[in-house]
Write a protein that binds this DNA or RNA. Structure first.
Lengths: 358, 358
DNA sequence: CTGAAAGCGCTTACAG
DNA sequence: CTGAAAGCGCTTACAG
């Protein structure tokens, strides 16, 4: 039986100290390299470090946390964990957090108000040191720092990681304009989605700069907390029923774009032959979608990484009440197969008119 | 300023007791409804409960954990968090766990051996009470219970949640057989994937029952820890280079199936016109893939839910060293657009021969 | 019916 | 250079 397969239960500082015939204080100091650590005799340090390794001593984080009043835990709160968006951000968060010696809880609220309300206090009772809110708006004022990823917070939130929505809108709109699209339909985000308004403002601004007219009859909005592509499909059906001609759709996110494409297909329309569709996010399924999605890519992992390292910075600096600030990250634009030249370009300056589906 | 917007810091049991002019013992007993709770005067109980609500008392879980030697935390370990598979399971896990009053850490090892080795002891030092291992093989023997989702464990693991691989193989193979496919290619899972062997055994077994011959030259295997569809694409390129005729591919998972379709397209082959492709898992992108994937669906959420509730059961029963057991869950079969009648059916009993791609 | 006391496993002034 | 002691916020025998 080699030492790696032998299983001992955790050993305590007290036992370790006894074994070494030293006080807990001394052992604790060298284990943690705490101030005063250097004043301890090198030979003693040596002995201690050796015993730590041999006996596989690991401090009990609950005791440590209780004493130091730091749990070394943060929490990430997302709308829905089985969603490409949250998941990309989470992956980036993990990178930064573990390097900093923190673990994280993840909780998802699924847009249920009770959960959204309960979680902060539940987490507080868990002595969580900070919160990263992904695409969710924290209403209550918390006594721990929160950094949010694309969710502007009235209160609490110290740092906001936000996409440069203006650049995003410019990418998409210039692309469509270059392809000759003039009648562009828009699928706005759900009212509860924290990005919805910021994104929409940028779109209208950029549209006017580019002299693109937005017809109110070509604006639809995602509704319901349904996950997946269904909300986008429904919105597009509504759009088609309005019987207002358009040659392109700019969707709030990739799911909505996929749903739009499904509705378009169901209505017998070709994408991108008759209608071009631009998505947003570049979630994993975007590239393999039918057709592959042209989309504005958010650097999700990077956003997570930045969020986590900002939170750690706040936690390390004792003055918790820093000034609020926003960190802007840049989108990129991915051209794939769901966009093409507007049809009236090849024919005669006249957008296609769709008959109502029903 | 109403009471909901006023922010107080956490109040301790001691302070609460002082305020009530009672001992901590008494207050603790009623807060926790611990044994002896009923012997306390109803009027006292009343007073305490009221104060708890008013002063918003929440026990400090670190102190509670230290004392009770229970952290009320478990950990989920997955290969990669931004992956449809893990994510589906996680979503189910959350449901059960939060109901039981547990929070969970999630860590992803990304197939890096150091991480795989380090995490168990890191988690142990965090006083995690149990581990749910998703598609990952824990090598070391742990002193805490682990339940695994589709990963057979030599050691440690108490409960295994496993798909009925035989039924899965039967679904896929019968489907292909019915469509007239006789020369079926197989993309096996990566060597490190814990499902690979079990699945393959079931496939060979069912194939022989159905009198389907598996040609060794039509077997390829996913390689590398690459994420996404690339490994499947590469494997399929290899397959095509072998120049051995086939009319269908049964892929290890949906990602691989998508990669296979990409490689097939690149080689100028139509799916499902010339080659049918069956996937596995039914991840979110499967339905919107081009073409939409016919696939064996794993009940991922259910698997997560069951895993979590089994773990909670073990944690609640003190006799930790229960007998090992396996819980089998059932797949379903989803027919979509990536499979069709074999070509030799329409023509003359002769499978298409592909020329080498290079 | 209720309380005083010990102790979970640590850290950290304070002292020498 | 090192140690004794207090205390973080709880729970739980033990006692009355």
């Amino acid at each position: 039986m080699d030492s790696s397969s032998r299983r001992r239960d955790a050993i305590s500082l007290k036992e370790l100290a006894q074994h070494l015939m030293l006080s807990q204080s001394t052992v604790s100091r060298v284990v943690n390299q705490s101030p005063g650590y250097l004043r301890i005799a090198p030979s003693t340090r040596e002995r201690i470090m050796q015993a730590v390794a041999e006996m596989n001593y690991k401090p009990n984080m609950m005791a440590q946390g209780l004493r130091r009043k730091r749990s070394q835990i943060v929490s990430v709160i997302v709308p829905e964990i089985s969603d490409g968006y949250s998941t990309g951000v989470l992956s980036g968060i993990e990178d930064s957090l573990l390097l900093g010696g923190y673990f994280y809880f993840v909780v998802s609220h699924r847009h249920r108000p009770e959960l959204l309300h309960e979680y902060p206090s539940l987490l507080q009772s868990r002595a969580v040191e900070g919160i990263i809110a992904v695409d969710t708006l924290i209403e209550e004022e918390l006594s721990i720092p929160v950094v949010s990823v694309s969710g502007r917070h009235r209160v609490g939130s110290m740092v906001n990681i936000e996409l440069d929505h203006q650049l995003a809108a410019r990418y998409a709109l210039e692309h469509l304009k270059k392809l000759g699209h003039e009648r562009i339909a828009f699928i706005k985000g759900q009212a509860f989605s924290s990005d919805t308004n910021a994104r929409w403002r940028s779109i209208t601004k950029v549209a006017s700069e580019l002299a693109i007219t937005i017809s109110p009859r070509l604006i639809v909005q995602l509704e319901g907390i349904g996950i997946g592509i269904e909300p986008g499909r429904v919105a597009t059906v509504t759009l088609l029923e309005r019987n207002e001609p358009f040659t392109a759709i700019f969707a709030f996110n990739d799911h909505a774009a996929m749903g739009a494409i499904m509705a378009l297909h169901e209505a017998g329309l070709d994408v991108p032959g008759q209608v071009s569709v631009v998505g947003f996010d570049d979630i994993p399924g975007a590239a393999t979608n039918n057709p592959a999605l042209t989309t504005v890519k958010q650097p999700l992992q990077e956003m997570g990484r930045v969020a986590a390292s900002e939170l750690l910075t706040i936690l390390r600096s004792d003055e918790r009440m820093k000034t609020k600030r926003t960190i802007r990250v840049l989108p990129t634009f991915i051209e794939r197969a769901s966009t093409a030249l507007a049809i009236h370009n090849q024919e005669k300056k006249e957008p296609v008119l769709f008959r109502s589906i029903r």
